[in-house]
Design a protein around this nucleic acid. Structure first.
Lengths: 340, 340
DNA sequence: AAACCGTCCGAAAAGGCTTTCTGCGACTGT
DNA sequence: ACAGTCGCAGAAAGCCTTTTCGGACGGTTT
C-alpha cells in the first residue's frame, strides 16, 4: 500500500508520446482501425503494453453513448433464488464487454428508486430486476430511458419483458414423475398459500392428476409454511388419515425433508413403500437426506442467462415483450425409484 | 417498450437553458456551491426537476477523477460465505454515493485478471476481494493503481488489508460456552483438515480446553468432511468409544445436524444429556433441527461492512494494513442449555 | 511539368460536466 | 462623489477518448 503506489493511470496521450505519434493515430492503432501502417501499429501497441494502458471507459462511454454497463436490481441478496439468477446473468454478460452494477433494494421501494437514479446517472444501458418470489411485482415506476427485464418475479405489466420458471408445468412434471414410479395415491404438501409459486405448482399437480383420472390424496393440496416442521407435521397427519398414501410431492426441499423424517420415523421405507419428490433442488438439503432427495430444479441460472440475453436484445432494439416461462427439470435421486 | 421511449437524458445545458442561466451557474446551483443567489438556485432546481435531470456520472467522473464506484470481486457467488460479506459491503456503500461493480471470477485466475482489467478501465476507486474459504489467498497480481481490501479470505501478503473472522477465538468461545453449560467431556468434530477454518477452530478449542485443565474427548479433533453424513458417522463412533461424552462442538451446522440425528436415534437427550453447538449459524439448518441448534455466527455481514469501511479509508488515503480479525458470537438455541 | 491518386498521419471537435477566473453592477465608507 | 468591496453570473479551460476531415508525401499518369 505505502510504496510506489498510484502509478496514475496512463492516458492515450502518454502512449502516443511514447510511440512518437499523435493521439489520433494511437487510438486508431489500439482499436484496430484501418489507416495505420502495420509498423506504426505495433509501435503503439508496444507503448501501450509498456505503460499498461487501459482506455478510460468513462471517456469512451461519454463520447459514444455506450457504457457497456447494466444494472442488476435485486430485492434480497440472501434469498437463495436471486443468487443463481444473478450468477446466470453475470455469466451471460461477463463473457463480453459488459460490467454489472449490483444493487440490493432490500424490498424497499424508496431504496429501489434511489438505486435506479444512481444507475441511470451512471448511464447503464439496461436493467435486470430480480425478485425473490414468483409473485408478479409492480413494474418500475416512471418512463425509464433504458430497457428493463424482470427475472424470476415477473412484472405485473404484461407489456414488460419477464423471464420466470414455469411452475404450473413443474407441478405436472413432478406428478408425472411420481406416476412413472408407479404411484397413484399422491399427496401434495406445500408452503404458504399466499405464494404464487405454491398456487401454480398446486394447479399443475391437480391438472396432471385429473388428466390421469386421479385425484390428490385428501382431494386437495395441503398448504402450510415453507418449513421442515410443517412437513413433519402434515406428513404425520396424512399417514394417519390416508395410510395408503404412496407418494409425496412437496412444495420445497425443506418440506420434503420434514416429510422424509416423519416417514422414516414411522417405519415407512422410502423409496420402496413411498416415493418423495421435493422442489428447488437445493443441494444442502437434497444430498443430505436419507435417502437422497429427488427434486424439481427451476434452472434459475438459465433464467438469469435468458434474462441477460433478452436485455441485450432489447438494448440492440429488438424489443420482445411478455412473460417467458422457462421449463423446470426433475433431478432424480434415491427418494423416487420406480416400483416393479 | 415500443412507445415514447428514449426521452434522451437531459443535460445540464438543457437545464440551464430552461432556467435562463449559463451552464456554469446551473452546475453551481445543483451542487450547492456558493456564489448563487437563492432565487436563481430555486429556479435552476425547478428546471432540473421538470426535466428529471440526472447529472451524467461519467462526465463528472471523467473530470474530477472520482467515479464513486468500487469493484467487488468474488470467487464463488453461490457459496454461502461470500453472500453475506457482499451484502454487508453493498450495505455500507449503498448508503452513500458509491455503486458497486460485481464480478465473479469463478475461482479462475485468468478470469480474475480479465475482470480486474475491466474494472480498472472503468476507473473503480477500489477493490474488495471476497473469498469463499478462510485460507489465505495469493494477492492480486500487479501494482494496482487503487487500494484493495480482502474480505473473509485474507491475502497471503501481510502488508495488504484483510478482514476476516477470528476462527481461533471462535473455537475457544464454543468450548467456553459448552463448559458454561456444565460440560467437561467435549468432542470436537469438524470438516476437511485442509481448511484453515477447521484448523483454526480446532486450535482455539484445544487451547480453551487446556486452559481449563481438560482435554478434548479422544485427545484430538476429529477431522472429516463438511457433511451431515460425516457428522452422523463420527457421532456414532464417538458414542461407542467414549460413551460418557457430554458435549459436541461441531465445525459446521451441517455436521452438527448429522450429530444431532445420531444422538436422537441413539436415545440421547439433547440438551439434557448432551449439549451440541454448531458453526456458521445457517438459519435453514439451525432452526429446523430438533432441538434447534446453538451455533457460532461469524458476523459475516459485519466483515463485509468493515471491509467496505477500510476500503473507504484507504481511498481517502488513510492506509491501514494487516489482517483484522473480527470476533464471532454464539447464538444460543435449544441444543445447549446449562445443566444444574 | 502539371494534375492526380493512394496511403498515413495529425489537428480538431465533440461529449457533459466542474472549476477557476474574469467582469459587471451595486453597495459601502470617507 | 469616488475608490474600494462584495455578490453574483458567465466565459472558458480541462478531463480522455473517438472520429472526421484535411494535409503531407511519394509515386503515377497525361
Amino acid at each position: 500500500m505505502a510504496s510506489g503506489e498510484t502509478p496514475r493511470n496512463a492516458t492515450l496521450t502518454d502512449v502516443a508520446r511514447l510511440a512518437g505519434v499523435s493521439i489520433a493515430t494511437a487510438s486508431k492503432a489500439i482499436n484496430g482501425r484501418a489507416q495505420v501502417r502495420a509498423e506504426t501499429r505495433t509501435r503503439v501497441l508496444e507503448a501501450a503494453e509498456q505503460l499498461s494502458f487501459a482506455p478510460n471507459a468513462l471517456a469512451r462511454g461519454l463520447l459514444q453513448g455506450r457504457t457497456g454497463t447494466v444494472g442488476l436490481l435485486t430485492s434480497d441478496l440472501e434469498g437463495r433464488f436471486s443468487i443463481p439468477v444473478l450468477m446466470g446473468a453475470e455469466d451471460a454478460f461477463g463473457a463480453g464487454q459488459v460490467s454489472v452494477f449490483l444493487c440490493d433494494a432490500r424490498g424497499d421501494a424508496i431504496r429501489e428508486q434511489h438505486h435506479i437514479r444512481a444507475l441511470l446517472s451512471r448511464r447503464v444501458e439496461g436493467l435486470i430486476v430480480v425478485g425473490s418470489r414468483t409473485d408478479p411485482r409492480p413494474p418500475l415506476a416512471g418512463d425509464l430511458p433504458v430497457p428493463v427485464v424482470y427475472a424470476y418475479a415477473p412484472s405485473e405489466n404484461p407489456e414488460d419483458i419477464s423471464i420466470t420458471a414455469n411452475n404450473v408445468e413443474a407441478g405436472g412434471l413432478a406428478i408425472d414423475h411420481l406416476m412413472a414410479c408407479g404411484r397413484r395415491r399422491i399427496a401434495h404438501v406445500t408452503g404458504d398459500a399466499s405464494y404464487a409459486a405454491a398456487q401454480d405448482r398446486s394447479r399443475g399437480a391437480e391438472r396432471a392428476m385429473a388428466e390421469a383420472g386421479l385425484e390428490l390424496v385428501g382431494g386437495r393440496t395441503f398448504f402450510g409454511s415453507w418449513s421442515e416442521g410443517w412437513g413433519r407435521g402434515v406428513a404425520a397427519m396424512i399417514l394417519d388419515q390416508y395410510p395408503d398414501v404412496d407418494g409425496f410431492f412437496c412444495g420445497s426441499d425443506q418440506i420434503a425433508r420434514g416429510v422424509l423424517d416423519t416417514l422414516r420415523e414411522s417405519g415407512r421405507d422410502v423409496p420402496r413403500d413411498i416415493s418423495v419428490i421435493g422442489f428447488d433442488n437445493w443441494a444442502v438439503l437434497t444430498t443430505n437426506t436419507r435417502p437422497q432427495l429427488t427434486s424439481v430444479d427451476m434452472n434459475l441460472e438459465q433464467v438469469g442467462r435468458v434474462a441477460a440475453r433478452r436485455l441485450f436484445e432489447a438494448i440492440e432494439g429488438q424489443a420482445a415483450s411478455g412473460i417467458e416461462e422457462l421449463p423446470c427439470r426433475i433431478v432424480t435421486r434415491e427418494s423416487s425409484v420406480p416400483v416393479p
